[in-house]
Amino acid sequence: MIALVGLVAVMTALSLLLGSNLISPYAVVGALVDPANDPGAVVWGSRVPRTVLGLLVGLCLGVAGAVMQGQTRNPLADPGIFGVSAGASLAVVIGVYVVGTSSVLATLWLALAGAIVASIVVFGVAALGRGLSSPVPLAIAGTAVSALLVALTSYLVLSDETTLAAYRIWVVGSLSGRTLDGVGIAALFALAGLVFAVANVRSLNSLALGTELARGLGENLLRARILGLAAITLLTASAVAITGPIGFIGLTAPHIARRLVRGDHSWLVPASGLIGACVLLACDVIGRVIGGTAEVPVGVVLTVLGGVVFIGIVRRGRIAAL
């Protein structure tokens, strides 16, 4: 765990030092110490915000992934399953289609609202049906609602090219051009999500033994589910709002964490969060340095590298049935 914290520190340093603008490390340190001495606002205007946001988003997705896989006892569960990404996407698309807004700040609010509304709908659908004790109705409700939302999103973007153009840029997932303005609210939601996730850790350990046994251990299943869902929704919603949907971190970070710290969720959840932060920053740095004066969005780097890494994990054949 200490090694992971160290790795996060190293990644943070790299993310501040490296970029598509090849300024010297001394200049970066100089600008960090003295913000007035920051030509072109490269350090404080670009590197610092994207590093902070990368850490936050990676942490959120890593933690959300670990909680998600713990809740559903499914190693292939991704935080997007509860319709959060689909809800955020639809809200962003509606924003562009109806009002024509694609500013970063408006997108942030829309994505946040869409994600939360979608997960409330999913939770409502599942609660109306067979209840919440088993994770299966939740996952099915999430998949069904996601499919509906994705269909609506597709309809809107395919019928209007302007919307498609704005959506295309957002859906890739990028840390480029983001500032810290207005991110405070997303960070607050993320913080609440982290608190819920920590509070959910003990329940996740009981749930790992199976629903029946968890109940036998005196676990309040409804409370455990609501807490977990709230954590996943808030964490994923704030991440999606900041960068757009970013795949693979929520899926792979828990697997890497499980390899390192085994199955105890009180270690697994934070480890997964730290790994998520490391991976996101690393991929962002790679995208920044391979594009010349332009950049490759982090979402693209992650999709390419994440796919390869995940195949590696599967090939090792050590995915434990949860």
């Binding site: 970029g19 598509s20 603008n21 072109g40 490269v42 670009s46």
Partner: peptide
């Protein structure tokens, strides 16, 4: 086109 990332805007 010449493409500049935001941190290369000064160029």
């Amino acid at each position: 086109w010449d493409i500049y990332s935001w941190e290369n805007a000064a160029q």
